[in-house]
Nucleic acid binder design. Structure first.
Length: 428
DNA sequence: TCTGGGGTCCTAGGACCC
DNA sequence: TCTGGGGTCCTAGGACCC
């Protein structure tokens, strides 16, 4: 059997850990640039604050009820996430194949070693332990497949009082009932596009979908993906646990600007900054990139109605040789900016992508490379170490700019309680 | 005025080869 | 006049996830 363990309102829970005064108060956390609501406490949800809604649109509710608002604080969430996952790994005897970290606030667990009749009690044990050790409350769904476990988890969250945040689907009868209670558009693996199709075909419940033939799913729901979904709903495991720590195949850094930008110098600064960040991620997994891509999005008049479909233009460069050196990547990327940039336009967003990743086998120093290059590699390493230990961009390249007027807004960020000495809570 | 960021997997179709 | 078939690799784009 598989379990999914999911932290309740994760970002809000993290913020509350260090603010006991907010423990039963409504709280929300905003996306980068203070754009959208990306986490809300149960109290905030009950007051009518929507998920993924722009901050300014829900501002009237927030002000009226004096809801606590935080900009996102990823240092804090990343650290708390690590603590939760370590707890789960400890419970599994550090058997790496039994815990798959699925996202910052979710993990799948393989519970095949626990007798079926013990699973409800074992789920309570997991929940209790995580809450004791980290202060974060979790919901747990358990079922024969990942997809059914996700579905169980959803049902557990829907009625926390009744379920105690735990739902276990052991028997076929329990699974059938759960499928009948779930709409297709609430399934893991069914997004907006398929939901519209399915409902047009008259398939509205997960139960109905599970009874469709596999060939039909192959034709109409993205080939093997659709077949796997249907098999999973029927209790046949088709999406296996994944090994941890697989290297990324693509690394991206993209951001909205804090205000519209029209000067090429500023766009280059931003792109150089994003490349520096992406190159750090690249070196952390000991990879080198063979392709650099850049995109910029201009500010269109109709962005209010259709803001996602902005006028995005992008281009990429294949490097003569894969590299992990920041300055080489910056050179390629700023070159692309010159190709893409149009004088007189205003831009609201830019991003970089590193792909065609290969192992950086020259990390130890390449015998045939010029001496100067090995020195630069040493410098990269030193910069990464300093930036990591300071948990900030203490050292950076001149081309990334010093003023950064284009930088995103983050006006309401909490302290980095758990990762910076100067932000540690003081006990009087 | 104000709408996030970072990924993965899969398929179709074109280019190219024999 | 007559113009195959099958394989591989790559890319773009669509769909999904949190």
């Amino acid at each position: 059997m598989k379990a999914i363990v999911d932290c309740n309102n994760f970002y809000c829970s993290c913020e509350r850990l260090f603010r006991p005064d907010l423990w039963s108060k409504p709280v929300v956390v905003l996306s980068n640039n203070d754009g959208c609501i990306i986490s809300r406490s149960d109290e905030a949800r009950k007051l009518g604050v929507g998920m993924a809604i722009p901050y300014f649109q829900t501002r009237h509710i927030i002000d009226k009820h004096d809801i606590a608002v935080f900009s996102s604080n990823y240092h804090l969430y990343g650290d708390m996430s690590w603590r939760v996952m370590e707890t789960l790994r400890t419970l599994m005897g550090h058997d790496a194949s039994r815990v798959e970290v699925y996202s910052v606030d979710e993990a799948f667990m393989d519970l095949d070693h626990i007798p079926l009749e013990d699973l409800p009690a074992y789920a309570r044990h997991i929940k209790y332990t995580v809450e004791q050790w980290t202060g974060i409350s979790v919901s747990i769904g358990i079922a024969p497949t990942k997809t059914l476990a996700k579905l169980a988890n959803r049902l557990a969250k829907k009625n926390k009082q009744l379920s105690g945040c735990i739902k276990v689907l052991l028997t076929e009868e329990e699974q059938r009932l759960a499928l009948q209670q779930t709409r297709v558009d609430d399934l893991w693996g069914v997004g907006r596009a398929y939901a519209v199709k399915l409902i047009n075909w008259g398939i509205t419940s997960a139960w109905e979908l599970s009874n469709m033939p596999e060939e039909w799913a192959h034709t109409n729901m993205g080939g093997v993906t659709g077949v796997r979904l249907i098999r999973e709903l029927r209790g046949l495991p088709s999406i296996e646990m994944e090994e941890e720590l697989v290297d990324k195949k693509m690394i991206a850094t993209t951001r909205m600007f804090g205000r519209p930008v029209s000067e090429i110098r500023e766009i280059k600064e931003a792109v150089a900054t994003y490349i520096s960040r992406a190159a750090e991620k690249l070196r952390r997994q000991h990879s080198a990139a063979g392709t650099v891509s850049v995109f910029i999005v201009s500010k269109e008049q109709d962005h209010l109605t259709d803001f996602k479909r902005g006028a995005t233009i992008s281009n990429h460069t294949t490097l003569p040789r894969a590299t992990s050196l920041t300055h080489e990547l910056i050179k390629a990327a700023t070159g692309l900016v010159e190709v893409l940039y149009e004088h007189g336009k205003e831009y609201k967003k830019a991003g970089v992508m590193l792909s065609s990743l290969v192992p950086d086998d020259s990390i130890q120093g390449n015998l045939f490379a010029p001496h100067a290059e090995n020195e630069r590699r040493g410098l990269m390493h030193a910069i990464d170490n300093i930036n990591f230990s300071m948990r900030d961009d203490s050292v950076k390249f001149g081309s990334s700019g010093m003023n950064k007027n284009w930088k995103m807004r983050q006006e309401l960020r909490s302290s980095r309680y758990s990762t910076r000495w100067e932000d540690l809570r003081k006990v009087q």
